[in-house]
Design a binder for these strands. Structure first.
Lengths: 198, 198
DNA sequence: AAATAATACGAACGGTCGTACTATTGTCAA
DNA sequence: TTGACAATAGTACGACCGTTCGTATTATTT
Protein backbone atom coordinates (compact mmCIF):
# COMPACT_ATOMS: atom_id res chain seq x y z
CA UNK A 1 0.00 0.00 0.00
CA UNK A 2 1.66 3.17 -1.24
CA UNK A 3 1.72 6.40 0.67
CA UNK A 4 -0.83 7.91 -1.67
CA UNK A 5 -3.24 5.09 -1.04
CA UNK A 6 -2.76 5.47 2.69
CA UNK A 7 -3.51 9.18 2.74
CA UNK A 8 -6.42 8.66 0.42
CA UNK A 9 -7.88 6.16 2.87
CA UNK A 10 -7.30 8.55 5.77
CA UNK A 11 -9.01 11.32 3.85
CA UNK A 12 -12.01 9.14 3.13
CA UNK A 13 -12.29 8.11 6.77
CA UNK A 14 -12.45 11.71 7.88
CA UNK A 15 -14.67 12.67 4.95
CA UNK A 16 -17.10 9.93 5.90
CA UNK A 17 -17.44 11.26 9.43
CA UNK A 18 -17.88 14.77 8.10
CA UNK A 19 -20.48 13.69 5.56
CA UNK A 20 -22.31 11.84 8.27
CA UNK A 21 -22.95 15.03 10.19
CA UNK A 22 -22.88 17.69 7.48
CA UNK A 23 -24.09 15.86 4.40
CA UNK A 24 -22.41 15.48 1.03
CA UNK A 25 -22.90 19.15 0.24
CA UNK A 26 -21.74 20.28 3.66
CA UNK A 27 -18.61 18.23 3.12
CA UNK A 28 -16.05 20.86 2.28
CA UNK A 29 -12.55 20.45 0.96
CA UNK A 30 -11.07 23.28 3.01
CA UNK A 31 -12.23 22.18 6.44
CA UNK A 32 -11.61 18.54 5.56
CA UNK A 33 -7.99 19.43 4.78
CA UNK A 34 -7.72 21.38 8.03
CA UNK A 35 -8.90 18.44 10.09
CA UNK A 36 -6.30 16.24 8.44
CA UNK A 37 -3.56 18.83 8.82
CA UNK A 38 -2.93 19.04 5.13
CA UNK A 39 -3.35 21.61 2.41
CA UNK A 40 -6.49 22.09 0.38
CA UNK A 41 -4.67 21.60 -2.89
CA UNK A 42 -2.84 18.53 -1.68
CA UNK A 43 -6.09 16.90 -0.69
CA UNK A 44 -7.82 18.06 -3.84
CA UNK A 45 -5.22 16.38 -6.02
CA UNK A 46 -6.32 12.98 -4.75
CA UNK A 47 -9.74 13.30 -6.32
CA UNK A 48 -9.67 15.93 -9.05
CA UNK A 49 -13.06 17.38 -8.26
CA UNK A 50 -15.49 17.66 -5.42
CA UNK A 51 -17.98 15.46 -7.20
CA UNK A 52 -15.43 12.66 -7.48
CA UNK A 53 -14.66 13.08 -3.79
CA UNK A 54 -18.36 12.76 -3.01
CA UNK A 55 -18.59 9.64 -5.11
CA UNK A 56 -15.59 8.15 -3.34
CA UNK A 57 -17.15 8.92 0.02
CA UNK A 58 -20.39 7.24 -1.01
CA UNK A 59 -18.57 4.14 -2.16
CA UNK A 60 -16.61 4.01 1.06
CA UNK A 61 -19.87 4.33 2.98
CA UNK A 62 -21.36 1.49 0.98
CA UNK A 63 -18.33 -0.67 1.69
CA UNK A 64 -18.63 0.02 5.39
CA UNK A 65 -22.34 -0.74 5.26
CA UNK A 66 -21.64 -4.00 3.49
CA UNK A 67 -19.05 -4.95 6.10
CA UNK A 68 -21.21 -3.96 9.06
CA UNK A 69 -24.71 -4.90 7.97
CA UNK A 70 -24.82 -7.17 4.95
CA UNK A 71 -21.83 -9.50 5.32
CA UNK A 72 -22.47 -10.47 8.97
CA UNK A 73 -26.10 -11.14 8.03
CA UNK A 74 -25.08 -13.34 5.12
CA UNK A 75 -22.95 -15.29 7.58
CA UNK A 76 -26.18 -16.30 9.32
CA UNK A 77 -28.03 -19.43 8.15
CA UNK A 78 -30.28 -18.68 5.23
CA UNK A 79 -33.93 -18.09 5.88
CA UNK A 80 -35.41 -16.18 8.77
CA UNK A 81 -32.21 -15.82 10.81
CA UNK A 82 -30.59 -14.04 7.91
CA UNK A 83 -33.55 -11.73 7.31
CA UNK A 84 -33.74 -10.81 10.96
CA UNK A 85 -29.98 -10.25 11.17
CA UNK A 86 -30.22 -7.88 8.21
CA UNK A 87 -32.72 -5.68 10.01
CA UNK A 88 -31.04 -5.94 13.40
CA UNK A 89 -27.67 -5.03 11.94
CA UNK A 90 -29.23 -2.14 10.09
CA UNK A 91 -30.70 -0.77 13.30
CA UNK A 92 -27.33 -1.18 15.02
CA UNK A 93 -25.65 0.56 12.08
CA UNK A 94 -27.88 3.59 12.56
CA UNK A 95 -26.69 3.81 16.16
CA UNK A 96 -23.04 3.07 15.36
CA UNK A 97 -20.80 5.79 16.81
CA UNK A 98 -18.44 5.26 13.88
CA UNK A 99 -20.88 7.41 11.92
CA UNK A 100 -21.36 10.29 14.34
CA UNK A 101 -24.25 11.71 12.33
CA UNK A 102 -26.01 8.61 11.09
CA UNK A 103 -26.01 6.83 7.77
CA UNK A 104 -24.54 9.11 5.10
CA UNK A 105 -26.32 7.26 2.32
CA UNK A 106 -29.72 7.85 3.83
CA UNK A 107 -28.90 11.52 4.29
CA UNK A 108 -27.61 11.73 0.73
CA UNK A 109 -30.80 10.12 -0.56
CA UNK A 110 -32.87 13.04 0.58
CA UNK A 111 -30.20 15.58 -0.23
CA UNK A 112 -29.97 14.43 -3.84
CA UNK A 113 -33.46 13.20 -4.65
CA UNK A 114 -33.98 16.33 -6.72
CA UNK A 115 -30.50 16.81 -8.11
CA UNK A 116 -30.03 14.58 -11.13
CA UNK A 117 -26.48 13.68 -12.01
CA UNK A 118 -23.83 11.08 -11.38
CA UNK A 119 -24.11 11.33 -7.61
CA UNK A 120 -27.84 10.74 -7.68
CA UNK A 121 -27.30 7.82 -10.05
CA UNK A 122 -24.83 6.30 -7.63
CA UNK A 123 -27.17 6.69 -4.67
CA UNK A 124 -30.04 5.13 -6.58
CA UNK A 125 -27.84 2.21 -7.51
CA UNK A 126 -26.77 1.70 -3.91
CA UNK A 127 -30.33 1.85 -2.62
CA UNK A 128 -31.55 -0.60 -5.19
CA UNK A 129 -28.67 -2.92 -4.39
CA UNK A 130 -29.74 -2.91 -0.78
CA UNK A 131 -33.35 -3.46 -1.75
CA UNK A 132 -32.26 -6.45 -3.79
CA UNK A 133 -30.37 -7.87 -0.83
CA UNK A 134 -33.45 -7.65 1.38
CA UNK A 135 -35.70 -9.10 -1.30
CA UNK A 136 -33.22 -11.89 -2.00
CA UNK A 137 -32.91 -12.89 1.65
CA UNK A 138 -36.67 -12.77 2.04
CA UNK A 139 -37.25 -14.91 -1.03
CA UNK A 140 -34.75 -17.40 0.36
CA UNK A 141 -36.73 -17.54 3.58
CA UNK A 142 -39.79 -18.39 1.54
CA UNK A 143 -37.93 -21.14 -0.29
CA UNK A 144 -36.68 -22.51 3.03
CA UNK A 145 -40.24 -22.78 4.21
CA UNK A 146 -39.85 -20.15 6.91
CA UNK A 147 -42.10 -17.59 5.31
CA UNK A 148 -45.44 -18.00 3.56
CA UNK A 149 -45.29 -18.77 -0.12
CA UNK A 150 -47.94 -16.16 -0.89
CA UNK A 151 -45.87 -13.42 0.78
CA UNK A 152 -45.31 -10.33 -1.36
CA UNK A 153 -41.57 -10.03 -0.93
CA UNK A 154 -41.43 -6.55 -2.47
CA UNK A 155 -44.08 -5.32 -0.08
CA UNK A 156 -42.18 -6.99 2.74
CA UNK A 157 -38.94 -5.28 1.76
CA UNK A 158 -40.64 -1.91 1.47
CA UNK A 159 -42.01 -2.18 4.98
CA UNK A 160 -38.77 -3.43 6.49
CA UNK A 161 -36.67 -0.74 4.88
CA UNK A 162 -39.18 1.94 5.82
CA UNK A 163 -38.99 0.88 9.45
CA UNK A 164 -35.20 1.11 9.40
CA UNK A 165 -35.45 4.57 7.92
CA UNK A 166 -38.10 5.72 10.34
CA UNK A 167 -35.89 4.56 13.16
CA UNK A 168 -33.31 7.14 12.16
CA UNK A 169 -35.81 9.93 12.73
CA UNK A 170 -36.88 8.75 16.16
CA UNK A 171 -33.40 7.89 17.30
CA UNK A 172 -31.19 10.61 15.84
CA UNK A 173 -33.44 13.65 15.69
CA UNK A 174 -36.04 13.08 18.38
CA UNK A 175 -33.64 11.06 20.54
CA UNK A 176 -36.54 9.03 21.83
CA UNK A 177 -35.25 6.37 24.25
CA UNK A 178 -37.94 3.97 23.11
CA UNK A 179 -36.95 4.21 19.45
CA UNK A 180 -34.78 1.12 19.43
CA UNK A 181 -37.46 -1.01 21.09
CA UNK A 182 -40.06 0.29 18.67
CA UNK A 183 -37.91 -0.49 15.66
CA UNK A 184 -37.00 -3.97 16.80
CA UNK A 185 -40.56 -4.75 17.82
CA UNK A 186 -41.75 -3.55 14.42
CA UNK A 187 -39.36 -5.63 12.32
CA UNK A 188 -39.99 -8.70 14.46
CA UNK A 189 -43.70 -8.15 13.97
CA UNK A 190 -43.20 -7.83 10.24
CA UNK A 191 -41.28 -11.09 10.16
CA UNK A 192 -43.72 -12.90 12.42
CA UNK A 193 -46.63 -11.92 10.22
CA UNK A 194 -44.85 -13.50 7.28
CA UNK A 195 -44.28 -16.78 9.08
CA UNK A 196 -46.05 -19.92 7.97
CA UNK A 197 -49.02 -20.76 10.17
CA UNK A 198 -48.64 -23.16 13.08
CA UNK B 1 -52.83 43.18 4.18
CA UNK B 2 -49.99 45.63 3.73
CA UNK B 3 -47.54 45.53 0.88
CA UNK B 4 -44.83 44.19 3.14
CA UNK B 5 -46.99 41.31 4.23
CA UNK B 6 -47.82 40.51 0.63
CA UNK B 7 -44.19 40.36 -0.51
CA UNK B 8 -43.25 38.43 2.57
CA UNK B 9 -45.84 35.83 1.68
CA UNK B 10 -44.63 35.70 -1.91
CA UNK B 11 -41.06 35.25 -0.70
CA UNK B 12 -42.07 32.40 1.57
CA UNK B 13 -43.98 30.67 -1.22
CA UNK B 14 -40.93 30.71 -3.43
CA UNK B 15 -38.62 29.88 -0.55
CA UNK B 16 -40.74 26.86 0.29
CA UNK B 17 -40.41 25.49 -3.23
CA UNK B 18 -36.70 26.14 -3.19
CA UNK B 19 -36.25 24.50 0.20
CA UNK B 20 -38.22 21.53 -1.02
CA UNK B 21 -35.65 20.78 -3.69
CA UNK B 22 -32.46 22.26 -2.24
CA UNK B 23 -32.95 21.96 1.50
CA UNK B 24 -32.81 24.65 4.14
CA UNK B 25 -29.07 25.08 3.66
CA UNK B 26 -29.31 25.10 -0.11
CA UNK B 27 -31.89 27.83 0.21
CA UNK B 28 -29.92 30.91 -0.75
CA UNK B 29 -30.91 34.53 -0.41
CA UNK B 30 -29.29 35.61 -3.68
CA UNK B 31 -30.96 33.13 -5.98
CA UNK B 32 -34.21 33.43 -4.07
CA UNK B 33 -34.15 37.18 -4.73
CA UNK B 34 -33.36 36.56 -8.38
CA UNK B 35 -36.33 34.27 -8.82
CA UNK B 36 -38.58 36.89 -7.31
CA UNK B 37 -37.05 39.68 -9.35
CA UNK B 38 -36.01 41.62 -6.32
CA UNK B 39 -32.77 42.63 -4.70
CA UNK B 40 -30.88 40.56 -2.18
CA UNK B 41 -30.90 43.30 0.41
CA UNK B 42 -34.58 44.07 -0.06
CA UNK B 43 -35.46 40.46 0.54
CA UNK B 44 -33.04 40.17 3.42
CA UNK B 45 -34.68 43.08 5.24
CA UNK B 46 -37.86 41.07 5.60
CA UNK B 47 -36.21 38.54 7.88
CA UNK B 48 -33.05 40.03 9.36
CA UNK B 49 -30.99 36.88 9.07
CA UNK B 50 -30.87 33.68 7.12
CA UNK B 51 -31.71 31.68 10.20
CA UNK B 52 -34.89 33.65 10.74
CA UNK B 53 -35.75 33.10 7.09
CA UNK B 54 -35.25 29.37 7.55
CA UNK B 55 -37.47 29.39 10.61
CA UNK B 56 -40.17 31.27 8.72
CA UNK B 57 -39.99 28.75 5.89
CA UNK B 58 -40.35 25.87 8.33
CA UNK B 59 -43.38 27.45 9.94
CA UNK B 60 -44.95 28.07 6.58
CA UNK B 61 -44.30 24.44 5.67
CA UNK B 62 -45.94 23.31 8.89
CA UNK B 63 -48.96 25.49 8.18
CA UNK B 64 -49.28 23.98 4.73
CA UNK B 65 -48.92 20.50 6.16
CA UNK B 66 -51.62 21.24 8.71
CA UNK B 67 -53.95 22.53 6.00
CA UNK B 68 -53.28 19.65 3.61
CA UNK B 69 -52.88 16.67 5.91
CA UNK B 70 -54.10 17.28 9.43
CA UNK B 71 -57.14 19.51 9.09
CA UNK B 72 -58.89 17.45 6.38
CA UNK B 73 -58.26 14.35 8.47
CA UNK B 74 -59.74 15.95 11.56
CA UNK B 75 -62.82 16.69 9.48
CA UNK B 76 -63.35 12.94 9.19
CA UNK B 77 -65.38 11.17 11.86
CA UNK B 78 -63.25 10.26 14.84
CA UNK B 79 -61.88 6.76 15.07
CA UNK B 80 -60.55 4.69 12.24
CA UNK B 81 -61.67 6.96 9.37
CA UNK B 82 -59.67 9.78 10.88
CA UNK B 83 -56.56 7.66 11.43
CA UNK B 84 -56.69 6.34 7.89
CA UNK B 85 -57.26 9.82 6.45
CA UNK B 86 -54.20 11.02 8.30
CA UNK B 87 -51.98 8.46 6.61
CA UNK B 88 -53.64 8.74 3.20
CA UNK B 89 -53.31 12.52 3.25
CA UNK B 90 -49.69 12.21 4.29
CA UNK B 91 -48.94 9.95 1.36
CA UNK B 92 -50.73 12.37 -0.97
CA UNK B 93 -48.76 15.24 0.56
CA UNK B 94 -45.50 13.53 -0.33
CA UNK B 95 -46.64 13.37 -3.95
CA UNK B 96 -48.09 16.89 -4.00
CA UNK B 97 -46.60 18.88 -6.90
CA UNK B 98 -46.91 22.02 -4.75
CA UNK B 99 -43.71 20.82 -3.09
CA UNK B 100 -41.61 19.97 -6.12
CA UNK B 101 -38.95 18.27 -4.03
CA UNK B 102 -40.99 16.59 -1.34
CA UNK B 103 -41.68 17.49 2.26
CA UNK B 104 -39.23 20.18 3.40
CA UNK B 105 -39.66 19.23 7.04
CA UNK B 106 -38.61 15.65 6.45
CA UNK B 107 -35.57 16.86 4.50
CA UNK B 108 -34.73 19.35 7.22
CA UNK B 109 -34.98 16.61 9.85
CA UNK B 110 -32.05 14.77 8.38
CA UNK B 111 -30.23 17.95 7.45
CA UNK B 112 -30.33 19.26 11.01
CA UNK B 113 -30.28 16.15 13.14
CA UNK B 114 -26.67 16.92 14.03
CA UNK B 115 -26.80 20.71 14.11
CA UNK B 116 -28.12 21.84 17.45
CA UNK B 117 -29.66 25.28 17.56
CA UNK B 118 -32.96 27.08 17.17
CA UNK B 119 -33.71 25.50 13.79
CA UNK B 120 -33.23 22.00 15.12
CA UNK B 121 -35.38 22.85 18.12
CA UNK B 122 -38.15 24.02 15.82
CA UNK B 123 -37.98 20.87 13.71
CA UNK B 124 -38.09 18.64 16.77
CA UNK B 125 -41.11 20.53 18.04
CA UNK B 126 -42.89 20.12 14.69
CA UNK B 127 -42.15 16.42 14.49
CA UNK B 128 -43.35 15.81 18.02
CA UNK B 129 -46.50 17.80 17.33
CA UNK B 130 -47.19 15.51 14.40
CA UNK B 131 -46.44 12.45 16.48
CA UNK B 132 -48.92 13.69 19.06
CA UNK B 133 -51.57 14.13 16.39
CA UNK B 134 -51.16 10.54 15.21
CA UNK B 135 -51.12 9.19 18.75
CA UNK B 136 -54.17 11.25 19.68
CA UNK B 137 -56.19 10.09 16.70
CA UNK B 138 -55.17 6.49 17.37
CA UNK B 139 -56.12 6.72 21.02
CA UNK B 140 -59.49 8.09 19.96
CA UNK B 141 -59.97 5.11 17.71
CA UNK B 142 -59.34 2.86 20.68
CA UNK B 143 -61.87 4.77 22.77
CA UNK B 144 -64.41 4.51 19.96
CA UNK B 145 -63.98 0.76 20.02
CA UNK B 146 -62.45 0.60 16.54
CA UNK B 147 -59.01 -0.46 17.69
CA UNK B 148 -57.97 -2.98 20.34
CA UNK B 149 -57.71 -1.64 23.87
CA UNK B 150 -54.35 -3.35 24.35
CA UNK B 151 -52.88 -1.61 21.31
CA UNK B 152 -49.59 0.19 21.96
CA UNK B 153 -50.46 3.52 20.42
CA UNK B 154 -46.86 4.77 20.50
CA UNK B 155 -45.67 1.69 18.68
CA UNK B 156 -48.53 2.13 16.23
CA UNK B 157 -47.56 5.75 15.56
CA UNK B 158 -43.91 4.84 15.09
CA UNK B 159 -44.78 2.29 12.45
CA UNK B 160 -47.25 4.53 10.65
CA UNK B 161 -44.90 7.47 10.54
CA UNK B 162 -42.01 5.26 9.44
CA UNK B 163 -44.05 3.98 6.53
CA UNK B 164 -44.88 7.51 5.42
CA UNK B 165 -41.20 8.40 5.59
CA UNK B 166 -40.08 5.29 3.77
CA UNK B 167 -42.56 6.10 1.05
CA UNK B 168 -40.62 9.27 0.29
CA UNK B 169 -37.52 7.22 -0.51
CA UNK B 170 -39.29 4.83 -2.83
CA UNK B 171 -41.37 7.48 -4.52
CA UNK B 172 -39.07 10.47 -4.82
CA UNK B 173 -35.61 8.97 -5.13
CA UNK B 174 -36.18 5.53 -6.60
CA UNK B 175 -39.30 6.63 -8.47
CA UNK B 176 -40.73 3.15 -8.07
CA UNK B 177 -44.20 3.05 -9.65
CA UNK B 178 -45.35 0.57 -7.02
CA UNK B 179 -44.36 2.84 -4.13
CA UNK B 180 -47.81 4.33 -3.61
CA UNK B 181 -49.49 0.93 -3.57
CA UNK B 182 -46.90 -0.40 -1.15
CA UNK B 183 -47.36 2.53 1.20
CA UNK B 184 -51.14 2.38 1.16
CA UNK B 185 -51.15 -1.38 1.55
CA UNK B 186 -48.77 -1.06 4.47
CA UNK B 187 -50.74 1.53 6.41
CA UNK B 188 -53.99 -0.30 5.79
CA UNK B 189 -52.34 -3.46 7.07
CA UNK B 190 -51.14 -1.61 10.13
CA UNK B 191 -54.63 -0.35 10.85
CA UNK B 192 -56.26 -3.71 10.15
CA UNK B 193 -53.94 -5.44 12.58
CA UNK B 194 -55.05 -3.01 15.27
CA UNK B 195 -58.73 -3.68 14.65
CA UNK B 196 -60.82 -5.44 17.26
CA UNK B 197 -61.42 -9.08 16.46
CA UNK B 198 -64.57 -10.13 14.65
C1' DA C 1 -50.70 68.04 0.73
C1' DA C 2 -47.28 67.33 4.10
C1' DA C 3 -45.06 64.27 7.22
C1' DT C 4 -43.61 59.93 8.41
C1' DA C 5 -42.87 55.23 8.11
C1' DA C 6 -42.34 51.18 5.35
C1' DT C 7 -40.12 49.05 1.63
C1' DA C 8 -36.71 48.28 -1.77
C1' DC C 9 -32.32 49.12 -4.06
C1' DG C 10 -27.20 49.13 -5.29
C1' DA C 11 -22.79 48.75 -3.82
C1' DA C 12 -19.56 46.94 -0.92
C1' DC C 13 -17.62 44.03 2.96
C1' DG C 14 -15.06 39.98 4.70
C1' DG C 15 -15.24 35.08 4.03
C1' DT C 16 -15.47 30.63 1.95
C1' DC C 17 -16.31 27.86 -1.88
C1' DG C 18 -14.23 24.75 -5.76
C1' DT C 19 -10.64 24.82 -8.95
C1' DA C 20 -6.31 25.91 -11.68
C1' DC C 21 -1.74 26.53 -12.01
C1' DT C 22 3.25 26.25 -10.37
C1' DA C 23 6.74 24.96 -7.19
C1' DT C 24 8.54 22.08 -3.80
C1' DT C 25 9.08 18.00 -1.24
C1' DG C 26 9.06 13.02 -0.62
C1' DT C 27 9.24 8.18 -2.24
C1' DC C 28 11.04 4.30 -4.37
C1' DA C 29 13.07 1.51 -8.15
C1' DA C 30 17.26 1.14 -11.00
C1' DT D 1 22.78 7.44 -5.01
C1' DT D 2 20.51 9.23 -8.47
C1' DG D 3 16.70 10.05 -11.56
C1' DA D 4 11.80 9.82 -12.39
C1' DC D 5 7.63 10.47 -10.76
C1' DA D 6 4.18 10.62 -7.19
C1' DA D 7 2.61 13.49 -3.50
C1' DT D 8 2.00 17.67 -1.20
C1' DA D 9 2.23 22.64 -0.61
C1' DG D 10 1.65 27.40 -2.17
C1' DT D 11 -0.69 30.95 -4.41
C1' DA D 12 -4.20 32.92 -6.99
C1' DC D 13 -8.68 33.11 -9.35
C1' DG D 14 -13.63 34.08 -9.99
C1' DA D 15 -18.00 33.11 -8.03
C1' DC D 16 -21.03 33.18 -4.48
C1' DC D 17 -22.17 33.43 0.48
C1' DG D 18 -24.69 36.27 4.39
C1' DT D 19 -24.61 40.79 5.95
C1' DT D 20 -24.31 45.98 6.42
C1' DC D 21 -25.02 50.57 5.01
C1' DG D 22 -26.67 54.77 2.92
C1' DT D 23 -30.06 56.18 -0.15
C1' DA D 24 -34.04 56.34 -3.06
C1' DT D 25 -38.69 55.19 -3.72
C1' DT D 26 -43.20 54.07 -2.48
C1' DA D 27 -47.26 53.59 1.05
C1' DT D 28 -49.65 55.03 4.60
C1' DT D 29 -51.13 58.23 7.92
C1' DT D 30 -51.83 62.89 9.62
Amino acid sequence: MSKGERTRAAILDQALAMTSTDGLTGLTIGTLADRLGMSKSGLFAHFGSKELLQAAVLERAADLFADTVVRPALAQPRGLPRVLALFENWIAWTMDPVLPGGCPIQAASIEFDDRPGPIQDLIVKQQEDMRRVVIGATRRAVEEGHLRTDLDVEQFAFEGISLCYGFTQSYRLLKNPKAEVWARTAVHGLVDRGRVRG
